[in-house]
Nucleic acid binder design. Structure first.
Lengths: 213, 213
DNA sequence: TAGATTGTTAATCGATTAACAATC
DNA sequence: TAGATTGTTAATCGATTAACAATC
């Protein structure tokens, strides 16, 4: 259980979202078979995935949608009260602050930073942009576990290195830098638009398969 | 070669980016060993990946950086002259239009659409937002191969279905809808921020491994 | 009870790594 | 030539699928 593959964790997030939809649809229970049909997976795979974390179902019945939804939320760690800082209030950074539902993942955004004088002091969402010079003091005091990197690629490795030396254990990386932290001091989840689009280019050329997971 | 795994294609995009960096650094040749060190992979894996598409190296020498960079660009299909429409000029849509380098992936954005009266007619980047009602006529005439879906989740499946019936063979999907197109009529590449962040939550809790690929 | 469906073990499949002969 | 490094085959490893006994 300490060594669950990344592929399993990503599918857990998908299960979580679909269970939420089922909940909204008023569906009370579901079998691995039915859930598999919905996600385009095999029932076997879903049962295997879930059993990495425990037995959540009941023979002859299936899974209780609400109970499973909550259990997966706990497994993913959405109820840990994690907090995050965001660094880089450019296009993508601003879009995230204004519109992304951090609370949906159980994360509280507590501060946003930029080093551009024109941007510092402006507001974005409910926040006022703080100067990058105050970042380390802020992190030392508030101890966020997560940092969202929405700054230029060049600055990313150095900022990440410094924050990993403080409280930050997870980086949500929107730069195209391949962050490599010494001694596995923190997790890195990269969202790379270019790589994603190039992958789509290839698959468009070869027109399929239609699914990407 | 017709059946290259998605994992290989994603790595090809990474190779492409790193080769571009090497090119900028003035590096003329590189061995699979050295490239592997840079990416945190094994040399064996890189040679296997490349040999899905042909032999690009030379024994005793390695790979010519520029030649390999170009070859991978061709393999990914970045020189096909693909064009794209973007649907949904909200936060993420606008951020993409204003700032994302579509040309870097060899794609020309040719039109952007929204169905909100307040948004139609406004400008974003070099574009004027067109009404969603004109989308199908536009696509029928201009025949873009790619559609960027940045609209609300609810509308995504229907819009995708209609466009797949026209010229669109690839969807870059920014909604949380799990698009499933009948008969594998088009490729779907999904960028799902929530799922990405939930995955990071889990890995932050288990504090590692640091790398996400 | 009988039917349904899980949890779990075994079999299969695919992807990664190792090894090495070919060759520049 | 000798050294380096590829292309490629074989071995290993891990992930997915199938099967089925347990059991609700």
């Amino acid at each position: 259980m300490g060594n669950v593959s990344l592929a399993v964790v990503r599918r857990m997030s998908r299960y979580y979202r679909h269970l939420n939809e089922l909940l909204e649809e008023g569906v009370g229970r579901i079998s691995s078979q039915a859930l598999a049909g919905r996600l385009g997976l095999t029932a076997s795979q879903i049962r295997q995935d879930l059993n990495c974390f425990g037995g959540f179902g009941q023979q002859g019945y299936g899974y209780n949608v609400e109970a499973l939804y909550r259990a997966i939320g706990d497994i993913l760690g959405l109820n840990q009260g994690l907090s995050a800082v965001l660094i880089g209030v450019g296009n993508i950074g601003r879009a995230l602050v204004n519109n992304f539902d951090f609370e949906g993942a159980g994360i509280t955004l507590i501060g946003i930073f930029d080093n551009h004088p024109d941007v510092v002091g402006t507001s974005a969402g409910a926040f006022t942009v703080l100067p990058a010079g105050q970042l380390e003091a802020f992190v030392s005091e508030k101890k966020p576990e997560i940092a969202v990197l929405a700054l230029p690629r060049e600055s990313a490795p150095e900022v990440a290195r410094r924050l990993a030396g403080l409280s930050v254990r997870g980086f949500w990386n929107f730069t195209s830098a391949d962050l490599r932290l010494e001694a596995d001091s923190a997790a890195v989840e990269t969202v790379n638009f270019s790589e994603s689009l190039m992958t789509l280019c290839y698959r468009t050329k070869h027109h399929g398969p239609a699914d990407d997971r």
